[in-house]
């Protein structure tokens, strides 16, 4: 079942629990990895919002990847990056218009949100339900091309 991570900025308090959950859900060699989700201030009356990959219908990251390392997981609907295929050219990091393809400089890896294989850990840990996950309904409106 395709999943969609729903972000409700109204409810976000900027506690950064999602960031912590993400780092621990994606460990590298037993250590927390770089978080794929970033709570950032919106500049409007102390409102925060988690910034996370939108899993675009027409993704610039996959289009920019010249070795086809970023592909859609048809089961979860997430764009997933294969680190064994990645040649670290940084094309996706530069091309993503939302800045959600990230370079983990500590481990020298490119990382992005993969929806944790269909069950996003950040949504489980969000104390205010600013992040929720729900399956995409079949009657979803088609993208305007």
């Amino acid at each position: 079942m395709k999943q969609r991570l729903i972000v409700t900025p109204d409810l976000c308090t900027g506690c950064r629990t999602c960031e912590l959950a993400c780092a621990f859900a994606h460990p590298i060699k037993g250590k927390p990895g770089r978080s794929r989700i970033y709570p950032l201030p919106t500049g409007k009356s102390e409102m925060w919002t988690p910034v996370v990959c939108l899993q675009c219908d027409d993704p610039a990251c996959a289009k920019s990847c010249l070795v086809d390392a970023i592909t859609r997981n048809e089961e979860t609907g997430a764009m997933e990056l294969d680190n064994d295929k990645c040649v670290k050219c940084m094309a996706c990091v530069a091309a993503c218009p939302f800045g959600c393809s990230l370079h983990d400089t500590l481990h020298d890896l490119v990382v992005k949100c993969d929806l944790c294989g269909g069950d996003p850990v950040c949504a489980h840990f969000c104390p205010t339900k600013a992040l929720t996950c729900r399956p995409v309904t079949p009657t979803r409106r088609k993208a305007v091309v």
Binding site: V7, P9, Y38, L40, P41, T42, G43, K44, M47, W48, T49, V51, C96, P97, F98, G99, C100
Partner: peptide
């Protein structure tokens, strides 16, 4: 890009 997105979502 991320900062821009957060500001847009706030708006």
């Amino acid at each position: 890009h991320r900062k821009e997105l957060s500001v847009k979502m706030g708006s």
